[in-house]
Write a protein that binds this DNA or RNA. Structure first.
Length: 578
RNA sequence: GCCCACAUAGCUCAGUAGGUAGAGCACGCCCUUGGUAAGGGCGGGGUCAUCAGUUCGAAUCUGAUUGUGGGCUCCA
């Protein structure tokens, strides 16, 4: 398998060289940057005299096919740096790369008319490139630096067989049907409006119904686990954010201050300061710790226009936030508790798997090396206790402390940013957040910032794409659709509706004078888990005919039986009626 | 923010030699009361994202603005 992947990667990398040759022939003035193999394909960055059009891509593809058909060998040469500078005269990006190579000799690969600075390896000859397709052209900064020139990147994919290519293209099409922006519109869950502002989400009744279920569950679970729920205001005086350091470090994410009676206020970008204020309203004893304060806190951050994306990157969002104030010796237990909660959430919401990253001390960090080391070790111990496998992300911690990030892995294998657990020594110091120890003296608390879902917005996106909009029954905005066969069955339908509503079931009656085929179709499109078809037979026997959204029809059963099974399925949160 | 593309009815979309807008779904009314994925008829609905410009005339050409998409960068 590994060998096969290497072969594929070699082919993809070679395809990128062939693409460069094609571009060179079509645009002789091109300056070449880099062109690696990536997952499923390859790209190459070019500095071109004009923007590329879809027609250009087709032409480049044709040229590539010619080169492949001509079966040009890939020739590897070792040359001195001085020779290489001659070869790449007039190619500033290649020359810049050459400067950074410490060795005195470098390798170049040549196929046809194109020679590239490249470590290799490559296929022996262009004919070994089996099937490829150019997907799109996009802008990309030279070396990923936004202060350097914007280059044009062409992305392509390449496979061993036509079938593999076709499968991949089909998979891309399939993925588009799971897109939360599309599903959100189709299922009438939320909207975002040009006239109201980008990145600001309007939750429709059905989206709000899902959110309420999530929030109620979240609150109950937190209270069970020893959290106190709080509410804090959306704006606060700017000085608070100066004290916390946000004004200094994160100003680019903050909205401009507003003037209120001569005082400057800003919208909160985080909830921590509010929780610290509550903590500090009285002297806390070591006996009061840990103090776990939780809030579904709505925050506003200025995100640059180009990064906004549906529900997953927005400018106003509600974090499922909490801050744990504890003693250092309690830190491990607290982190363990948060990990347990996070894993419980992952399981309850039906994610197949998860990935865990531990981020360590960055270059620019507050606090001493020793404290960092100790805190990082504490996180390691907690991870070990939870029996969780993780990877280390060196230097990716927040400036105020190390963190654990968990990604949800959905049904399709896509990973989503989920829970985050961050240790913080900085804010307690800035705000002088203390407790009185057994020794009668003041000691600084350790703060843990954490979310277990992320934000309501991003989490809904995650759920939507994970379930393709077919939520498990406990989360479905409409759990039951009652479909009377004819108008004379409406009274019975209403009676069922009333009885289900009495137990907080989210139920709708399709009371239109339409054929049931139409009503079934629309309930299917709405992905309602249970459709109850009721007509003369059902009324006579006090039963319901049940159709599942899978298309499966269950035996007609007494309404009371259905109802109790439904209620237990909802309460279990895990299993639907099958 | 940067590169490229796109913006037509509530939704999905058609409308290229520039001559003042169409379909399906949805919505309203009428007929139909039909047993598991679209019954039929009629009707209302659009200053073609916004603002300028070119032109006798702009959904269509040009520019700017706003927004969206694909990337890049960023994501405490």
């Amino acid at each position: 398998m590994a060998e096969k992947n290497e072969k594929l990667e070699m082919m993809r990398h070679s395809a990128s060289h062939v693409m460069a040759e094609a571009v060179q022939q079509l645009f002789p003035d091109t300056k070449f940057a880099i062109g690696p193999a990536i997952e499923n394909g390859f790209y190459y960055d070019f500095d071109l005299p004009r923007p590329l059009t879809p027609d250009d891509l087709a032409q480049i593809e044709n040229k590539m096919n010619e080169i492949i058909a001509a079966d040009k060998p890939f020739i590897r040469k070792e040359v001195t740096k001085a020779e290489a500078k001659g070869i790449f005269a007039g190619q500033p990006y290649k020359l810049e790369l050459l400067e950074e190579i410490p060795e005195s000799t470098v390798t170049v690969y040549q196929q046809g008319t194109f020679t590239d600075l490249c470590r290799g390896p490559h296929v022996a000859s262009s004919k070994e490139i089996k099937v490829f397709k150019l997907l799109n052209a996009a802008g990309a900064y030279w070396r990923g630096d936004e202060h350097r020139p914007m280059l044009q990147r062409i992305y392509g994919i390449a496979f061993e067989t036509r079938k593999a290519l076709a499968d991949h293209l089909q998979m891309l099409e399939e993925a588009a049907r799971y897109d939360h922006r599309k599903l959100g519109k189709e299922l009438d869950l939320f909207s975002i409006h040009e006239e109201a502002g980008p990145g600001l989400v309007y939750w429709h009744p059905k989206g709000s119904a899902i959110r309420r279920v999530i929030e109620d569950f979240w609150k109950d679970e937190h209270v069970k686990r020893g959290y106190d729920l709080v509410y804090t205001p959306h704006i606060a005086k700017i000085d608070l954010w100066k004290t916390s350091g946000h004004w200094e470090f994160y100003r680019e994410f903050l909205y401009s201050p507003m003037d209120i009676e001569g005082q400057q206020y800003i919208l909160k970008p985080m909830n921590c300061n509010g929780h610290i204020i509550i903590y500090k309203t009285k002297t806390r004893s070591y006996r009061d710790l840990p103090f776990r304060m939780a809030e579904l806190g709505t925050v506003y951050r200025f995100e640059r226009s180009g990064v906004l994306h549906g529900l997953s990157r927005v400018r106003g969002f509600t974090q499922d936030d909490a801050h744990i104030f504890c003693r250092f010796d309690q830190l491990e237990d607290e982190v363990t508790g948060v990990l347990d909660l996070a894993l419980f959430m992952i399981k309850t919401f039906g994610f197949k798997n998860y990935q865990v990253m531990l981020s360590t001390r960055p270059d620019k960090a507050a606090g001493s090396e020793e404290v960092w080391q100790e805190a990082t070790d504490t996180l390691r111990h907690a991870l070990a206790r939870a029996g969780v496998e993780y990877k280390v992300d060196p230097g990716e911690g927040v400036f105020y402390g190390p963190k654990i990030d968990i990604k949800f892995v959905g049904i399709l294998g896509k990973a989503w940013q989920g829970p985050t657990i961050q240790v913080d020594f900085n804010l307690p110091q800035r705000f002088d957040v203390n407790y009185i120890g057994e020794d009668g003296k003041e000691h600084q608390v350790v703060m843990v910032h954490r979310t277990v879902l992320g934000s309501m917005e991003r989490f809904l996106a995650t759920l939507l794409e994970n379930y393709a909009g077919a939520f498990p029954v406990w989360l479905s905005p409409v759990q039951v659709k009652v479909i009377p066969v004819a108008d004379r069955h409406l009274d019975y339908a209403r009676k069922l509706e009333k009885e289900l509503k009495a137990d907080n079931v989210r139920v709708e009656v399709d009371d239109r004078s339409e054929r049931i085929n139409l009503k079934i179709r629309q309930a299917q499109l709405e992905k309602v888990p249970y459709m109850l078809v009721v007509g003369d037979k059902e009324i006579a026997d006090s039963t319901v005919a049940i159709r599942l959204r899978s298309g499966k029809q269950l035996e007609a059963q007494p309404f009371t039986t259905f109802k109790s099974e439904l209620l237990s399925a909802i309460a279990s949160r895990v299993k639907d009626i099958e």
